[in-house]
Simulated assay, not measured.
Amino acid sequence: MDFSWITHYWPLLLKGAEQTIALLVISVSLGFCLAVVLALLQVMGPKPLAKFSSGYCTLLRGTPLLVQLWLLYYGVGSLLPMIPGIRHSFMWPVLREGFFFASVTFTLNYAAYEAVVLRAALLSVPKGEIEAGKAFGMSRWTLIRRVWLPRAIRIALPTIAGEVVLQLKATPLAFTVTVMDLYSVAYKIRQDTLLVYEPLILVAVFYVALSALIVKVFGRFERQLPVRR
């Protein structure tokens, strides 16, 4: 095993790790917010919106993430320059990058999976707790914000941790749309040095370490939450 190349490529490796973590943080944070809306629509929304939310989740969960990414990058991405004025707008430096399309795709995909988890968690909240909130005179949205949604998140927390780890393991797909994430850097190192195993071992160690950290953080957070009986 030869790891002497690390001293030469460490700035690029750090940049790749930053890109990977940025993709994870953006997609998980924005995707979770969207998932909350989708889950609430399915549980208590008007029937047309509930069906739309359910169909959205079925569609995105039923198609490969790579297909979604390529449809957005090669499909929508090729149409954007045809929109008048888009090339000269302040958003063009962002819209022309693969990182933007990867972030959007990962966010929409994560939201679909997380919405199903939150929907199940919302339906599993004991009805007595919701009735108690109503008895205190809480409005509908106050009840959701202070009782129903926090309790559902508490129930779903172990599953959410697993979904975040799965989302982390999906980030190497961004390599296919020119994003220089950690896997892309490993691919470049392999091309430059003709070393196959060493760069991939380094990538694997990074993902294992970050996955363990995510599980540990969620586990500690879960233990700090008050236990309701």
Rank of each mutant, 00 (worst) to 15 (best):
E129V: 01
L71W: 14
L95V: 02
L80Y: 06
A170W: 03
T176H: 01
V94P: 00
Y73F: 15
P150L: 05
L122K: 11
G98A: 06
I130A: 10
L80Q: 03
L108P: 11
V179C: 02
P64A: 06
G128S: 08
S103N: 10
K51V: 09
V179K: 01
L95N: 01
K188P: 00
P172E: 04
A50Q: 13
F52G: 14
R190V: 02
Y187M: 07
V164C: 13
G62P: 14
P126E: 10
L69S: 01
P158N: 05
V67F: 04
K169A: 06
I86K: 00
G162H: 05
P84V: 09
V94A: 02
L72W: 08
I155C: 03
L60R: 03
L194P: 01
F52N: 12
Y197V: 13
L194R: 12
L60T: 01
P81H: 06
A135Y: 08
R119A: 10
S89N: 07
G98I: 10
A161L: 02
D181Y: 01
P93H: 03
E114P: 00
V147R: 10
G98Y: 08
R145Y: 14
P81K: 06
V76N: 05
E131G: 01
L71N: 08
L122M: 13
A102H: 04
L60M: 07
A121F: 08
T178R: 11
L108W: 06
S89C: 05
L166A: 14
F90S: 09
V117N: 09
V67S: 01
V179T: 07
S103Y: 06
T58E: 15
Y110A: 14
P172K: 05
V185P: 10
A186W: 09
E198G: 07
R140K: 13
L123N: 15
G128Q: 06
A186G: 15
L166P: 00
Y73L: 11
V147T: 13
A112K: 08
R61Y: 02
F52V: 15
E131I: 00
W141R: 10
A156S: 14
T142W: 13
P64I: 09
T107G: 07
S89P: 06
Y187C: 00
F106W: 08
F106N: 03
A170Q: 12
Y74I: 01
Y183W: 06
